[in-house]
Nucleic acid binder design. Structure first.
Lengths: 219, 219
DNA sequence: ATTAATATTTAAGCTTACTTAAATATTTTT
DNA sequence: AAAAATATTTAAGTAAGCTTAAATATTAAT
């Protein structure tokens, strides 16, 4: 299957994985940087290939085959991220961009070699789960966005969910990394800011950023 | 530039690098597995982009820009080969196939990271020279095909010039690896066979294979 | 030096993956 | 519930990268 098709099913899967209501052609088109017309066209073509269900004006729904394809690409993406992160001194954003390209040109064999080399990791450097070779995600995610965390409690950063360069640069500078421990000191209700401390730094986050950072409470 | 274009200039460069007379559209077409008509079309298009000189019925000649592009792709190919060879237990043939895909999806930045990690190697696992980041090959090749080696002399294997799976499997089994020392025991003139020994094995090669293995004499 | 065999080029056509513009349907607002 | 705003779909068209078949040129053989 082509790169365009792989990116299409991946975009649907990613848009669909948490909430489930932004997979109309227009949403996917925006994510991929193509026109809505192109997305509608592609949706029809992929429906014919049995990768998704298409009904006019409805949300696009991946079939099992479509999900499997998406998860296979996502697996390769996240394995590359984990691998490049371990091997080279590169920013999360640069790593993401490389993985975005390499994911489509990686055999299942090479993916397995990378996975084995890394000890079959369950998460990538953003904390996103890595599907196994059968396209299954075996971990259950109990994390919540930082915007919903409770003041006075401690958390571990479990996911950084963004592709944005500025976001990653900010996180890197402020030690907001996957696996790091933080303490939420205050949630400002009116202006929706979150105050927290990491490694003796106090940081104030607006809602945009605190929604992109997922955390797990420490018992 | 597209993958098709990168492969096209690469094929011309490779066909042209030793001898210089098999770069007509038909030769390139055969190498790329496309029709001659498609190759002629592409040649005209690339001439318009100033990547090569095209004259009807003549050999295709890369311009400086075309050579630079070819060498940039070849650099990435050979860096990937060296990297995968070092990191993973994979056959030379499999490594070649992966590199053939990855070479087109690798930023200059990542290529530099790989090169630095490997200590800026000058050769890939086949013994082919790795161009530097400016597209220059700084090593001079004094090797000769094994078919032209002298009986009774010792040599170091300097290049294995093939993409063929059977060839690589044979070489791997017979310890015919880049850098290994061999002794040529006899050249059979009539049937063009070469007899040699590697690590206490005696091997008889036909012309097909002895032309693909390049060696350097040991003083 | 013709003829025969090959190779290259031209021409017409196809598929993929887009585009823009217009038509149509859905959603939101009032 | 109708009007306004928004989104989706349809239609027509484009560029890249191929194909096959026919025309033309080159190369090899007699």
């Amino acid at each position: 299957m082509s790169i365009a098709i792989e990116n299409f099913v991946k975009a649907i899967y990613n848009n669909n994985s948490h909430d489930a209501h932004n997979t109309k052609p227009g949403n996917i088109a925006k994510k991929l940087g193509i026109s809505s017309a192109a997305a509608t066209d592609m949706a029809k073509k992929l429906a014919a290939k049995n990768l998704l269900d298409y009904e006019k004006y409805q949300e696009l729904q991946l079939t099992d085959a479509g999900k499997k394809m998406a998860l296979n690409v996502i697996r390769k993406h996240r394995l590359w991220e984990a691998f490049l992160f371990k091997m080279f001194d590169m920013s999360l954003h640069d790593i993401h961009k490389e993985a975005e390209l390499l994911e489509h040109q990686t055999s299942d064999l090479l993916a397995e070699k990378i996975s084995a080399f890394l000890g079959h990791p369950k998460f990538d450097p953003h904390g996103d789960p890595i599907p196994n070779e059968h396209g299954e995600i075996t971990t259950t995610d109990t994390s919540i966005p930082l915007s919903e965390a409770e003041a006075g409690k401690n958390y571990i950063i479990s996911r950084l969910t963004s592709d944005d360069k500025e976001f990653f640069e900010f996180c890197a500078n402020q030690k907001l990394k996957y696996g790091n421990e933080i303490t939420v000191s205050k949630q400002f209700q009116k202006n929706k800011m979150t105050e927290l401390s990491v490694q003796n730094n106090t940081i104030l986050l607006n809602e945009d950023f605190s929604n992109l950072i997922y955390v797990n409470a420490i018992n």
